[in-house]
Design a protein around this nucleic acid. Sequence first.
DNA 1: TTTGTTTTGGGACGATCGTTCAGGTAGTTT
DNA 2: AAACTACCTGAACGATCGTCCCAAAACAAA
Lengths: 186, 186
Amino acid sequence: MKLQVDGRKARGDKRRAEIIAATLRIIERDGVAGVTHRTVAAEAGVPTTSTTYHFSSLDDLLIATLISCARDMATEVYWMIDRARSRGSRGAEEVAGLLAEALGPRRGRTMAEYELYLLAARKPELRPAARRWLDVLTSMVRHDDEVAFRVFLAGIDGLLIQGLIDDEPPSAEELRPVVDYLLKPR
Amino acid sequence: MKLQVDGRKARGDKRRAEIIAATLRIIERDGVAGVTHRTVAAEAGVPTTSTTYHFSSLDDLLIATLISCARDMATEVYWMIDRARSRGSRGAEEVAGLLAEALGPRRGRTMAEYELYLLAARKPELRPAARRWLDVLTSMVRHDDEVAFRVFLAGIDGLLIQGLIDDEPPSAEELRPVVDYLLKPR
DNA sequence: TTTGTTTTGGGACGATCGTTCAGGTAGTTT
DNA sequence: AAACTACCTGAACGATCGTCCCAAAACAAA
């Protein structure tokens, strides 16, 4: 069995990846509402029919984008945990910093993620991909108290979604006491 | 100064309210993406031009819908707090019940609220209305520990948004320990 | 080279979109 | 009664939408 040596399929895969990346940029900038075959194609620099060829419908394109997005998130969290462990930290500082970054420089990306998340609430076929994010966290982070860990995950989500409607993003220092409280064992 | 006796304006206000209610039903059923002048008009049983007459643009209609939605939420929370106080409860049972209801029978409404919430993240003119929800809670609920209260609010949001991508909604009994943990003083 | 498969891309179809306009109706004021 | 204001609505505009069709190009297998 040959593994991906067909130059045609290789080109196709590359283009699919470019289209997905362009879709994510569109969502970051204009939201899911801004995603059309034409806007995505223009962003990716390909003809309009290219997106309809590689993705049988707009829903398929959004599904592929969500899956790609969830994979990116997982690897990011993985490296953050790695950083925290190498410092011997309990993680509060790293988490607060990550939240501040998600609400500041990467605000568009955070909005995109939650829009895709809500889309998964409406489209059942997106849910496995959306749940992967929580699953990855649950499997990667060591936790003794199941309830405390659920509270921690919920708190992170809540802080992010509430921070998105602030006029200016909160700093890591402002978030720190809340994160500390979330992580404090009892 | 006469207070609202002009029959014409009274009719206009009534229709505006009907259009807003129809918009909310559309969002509950099909999401913000399903909101067009035509779908809203059909849902409300009015001609298409009626929605463009009363709301100068689609954005204005969504803003009005979010404001109306936030007001509804505030009164609901008000009554829940009233119920809890009259029972002498600390509120855990009431909160868990409210969450289970929001994720079960009222799931569509909950999705609509978070979609409008995310819309406020993208459109600054919506943010005051979106923030009103948190402000109302903050002013209505007695809280000594500011940090603990922020964690509580974030936790509620996180539990709701995570519950939206479950295949079947969690029961009040399942949510109870998490809510207890959120409310437990330390 | 010939044959078959996959990708590319221009063009176009019907549907639906937001919004505008002008004429008509109902209610208020003078 | 006349003048004025606010609301109502059918028709239509240009723009944009998702999607389809088909021929050309690139590449692989024969």
